[in-house]
Each structure stands twice: as C-alpha cells, then as structure tokens.
Design a protein around this nucleic acid. Structure first.
Lengths: 214, 214
DNA sequence: ACCGTCATGTCATCACGTGACATCAGGGGG
DNA sequence: CCCCCTGATGTCACGTGATGACATGACGGT
C-alpha cells in the first residue's frame, strides 16, 4: 500500500468541524459531512453513534489517561489531591493548542445539544474518577464528592482559560481554581440555614417542580 | 364553565410519566403520550419543545425560587453560604415526596438522553446562581466556582437521598454533603503536581483528544 | 482460485420535530 | 344578533436523524 490514507474517522471529524464552523451545527446535515469526507451518510453512523459524537469521540482517551494519573499517585495522597493529579493529566493533553480549543468551544457554545453532550462526558469522567478513588480506598460519598468538586474546578478553569485574552497554561489556571475553592470553603460555617418547609409544590426530578394535580 | 378540567400540560405530563415507567422512554412514542392525553402529537410539541422536556419543565420554578432565596440572604453572608441557602430552598421544594423522585430518577437513570437533559438543567441553575452571586458583588470566577461547587454538593446529596434505604430530609443530606466538602478541602495542599508536558496528542474540546493528523 | 472478513454502499423504514393552513370555541363590541 | 378576534387544537406535508437488512467490493490468507 502506498501513502498513508487518513481513516474515514479522521476525515469525517475534520469535515464536520469545518462545516460546523462555517454554517453552524444545526445547519449542517450529516449527508453534507459524509459527502465532504467522501463517504455516505450511512457510513457516518457506522463511525459515530451521533451527529454530535463526532465532536467528542476523544473523551475515552482523556478518561483513560486521567485514571492512569490517578492510580499512579502514591497511596498517601489525599482524595482531592489525587483528583488534582488527574485533572493535571487532562490539562496536559488538551492544553496544547488553545486556538483549536477556542474554535471547538465556539461551536459547542452555539448549540445546546452539544452542551448537553459535553456535560455528560464530564459527568462520565466524574463517575470514573469517583470509582478510581473508591478503588484507592476512599469512602463512597467522599469519592463522589471529591470527583464532582474536582470537575467543578475543571469546568470553571477551562472556561476561564479558553476565554482569556492572553495565552496561559491550562494547568496553572486549574491550580488557581483549586486554590480558590479551598479558600471559598475555608470560611466559617454558620448555623443551619433554616427555610420554612413551604412546599405546596411537588418536586419530582432533580429539577422538577410540578403543580400537584389537586 | 363547570368542573376544573386539568390542562393539556398536566395530562400530557402524567401520561408521559406513566408510559415511561411502563415501557421506558425510548419505547414510548410521542404519539402514544398524546393519544393517552387525548390530544394529537402535534399538540404535544406545542406544550413541550422536546419529548424529554415533558420530564423537566418544572425547573424554571425551582430556578426562580432558589434565586429568590439567594437574594433574600443578608449581604454579609459568604458566597458559599449564600449558595447553601439557595440549595436549601430547592431541597424544600423537591424534598417533599421521595417516592415520586425515585420513580423519576429511575426513568432518567435508564436513559442517557434524559441524563443529558438533567445535567444541562443543573448547569443552567449553576449559571443562574453564579449570576446572582455576582449581583451580590462577588468576583466573577469566585461566583462561578461557588455555584459549581454548590451544584456538585447538590448532585451528590440528591443521589444519596434518592437511593437511601430509609427516608430522610433532603436538606439534611445536603448539609452533610456540604460539610464533607469543607472537610475534603481542608487538607494540606502539597506542592504543585508536576506532570511532564507530554502532549503528542492534541486536546481540542473539553474532553477532546484527537490524534494530530501528522 | 477460493473463502472469510471488514468497510462501505444501497434501500427501506421509523420517529422526532416543524411550518403552513384549517377549524372550532368563547368573548366582546358593533 | 352577528361579526370578528383570539387562542387552542387538528390536519397535512416535509426535512432530518437514526437504524436494520442486504449487497458489493477490496484485501489477505490458504
């Protein structure tokens, strides 16, 4: 075989990114992406489960690497510090080219569906980190909380990094963000906040408030 | 007019919930929900933008109430404590009937699409809380971080509450979770974690790692 | 030359979601 | 009393996303 032909995956990914940047996500049809990549729409769905997934299929890599970082941490490392190491590994991977991150972020921010997908990827990451922490002997709810808090730090840091005027190291931003969290939680805890249990409304889902049907 | 006829909204919501519990979300078609509610499919989409949204349309209420709680807090309250007050308000609303919350959670947990929707609702809430904090004079990134951390606490607490064997007050679980976060972040911070900047891989989106196309 | 596998194309089919238009009920105001 | 306005709904048509079933063609090994 002669030269290296980029796989259909890569061509589809690039084609999609170009079209998304050009006309936007909704205005781009999978047939367009496929055509530009030189395949049919049916083939697109053989490589990506979703039209959205074409923008997110790198996440398994990241997840794996962050877990590796987590597990290579010395056993004496605290839960939150272990999470910090994992985040550092993630930042090492995606902190490389900020320009591309900006482009991608622009596409994602312009479309709610994509934001949903992004959030669930981060949630998966949180779940995986929590599992990793439990494997290290952390108590369950402590592990979940540390993972969730870590991702909170990551989200804020990433948003700040990608929006910043001048370039910087994502890992530094993450560390600053983590420090800020520590200072935020360091304040004195007042007595129990007491809200009157006024519930004429029924909450059902996490964010569901439905009028009780008399 | 004679008796009170429940609006199409309510009928659709109830019909949807019943069918979702019975056969699952994907197996339920919009036409089924509409039929059971006595309307056509087209009408369904006049009341809910999405098939998913029928499970989440209570969130604006919650958001509003939590913001109210936030703003009614004394100006001297710390950012994180203000967030705690907002979460307390939310818990007051949805903590009323745990059984229903369990059902809804079961439906949501069985379907990734629904989890995505849930996550984005929570993200909106986080954004709104951050904005509220900024209105109180908090610095931007501090506000975002506090809101994100608060939601992290909420997610963990809610999951724990809804899964618990015996009944309990959601607000208590949230307070415990918040306390746990404080203890987690209280540990000593070690020196900078240093990971070699080994990036032969290009990160592009928040969770995107794409092999660099040579 | 034969065969199995893998990637892809082709065709058919569903379900989601939306725009355009028609219909019907109720409520005023002439 | 009639007209008209408005809001909610039904009807129809259509584009798009996504999937299953089957055919085809390239490649590599035997």
């Amino acid at each position: 075989m002669g030269r290296w032909e980029p796989g259909a995956d890569s061509r589809l990914r690039e084609a999609a990114m170009e079209l998304f940047l050009d006309r936007g996500f909704e205005q781009t049809m999978v047939a367009d992406i496929a055509e530009r990549a030189g395949v049919t729409a049916r083939t697109f769905f053989r490589h990506f489960t979703d039209k959205r997934e074409v923008l997110f299929d790198g996440s398994p890599d990241l997840l794996e690497r962050s877990l590796a970082a987590l597990e290579s941490a010395p056993a004496t490392t605290s839960v939150l510090d272990a999470v910090a190491l994992a985040l550092d590994a993630v930042a090492g991977l995606i902190g490389g080219d900020r320009e591309y991150s900006k482009q991608r972020q622009a596409v994602i921010m312009a479309n709610p569906e994509l934001q949903e997908r992004e959030l669930i990827k981060l949630a998966h990451m949180s779940g995986a980190l929590a599992a990793g922490l439990r494997r290290r002997g952390a108590e369950a709810s402590e592990a979940e909380l540390a993972a969730e808090a870590g991702l909170a730090v990551y989200r804020v840091a990433y948003a700040q990094w990608v929006d910043a005027a001048e370039d910087g190291d994502l890992r530094d931003v993450i560390r600053e963000s983590m420090a800020r969290l520590r200072s935020l939680t360091a304040g004195a805890t007042p007595d129990q906040p007491s809200t009157a249990p006024d519930s004429d409304t029924v909450g059902t889902g996490v964010l569901q408030g439905v009028e009780r049907p008399s």
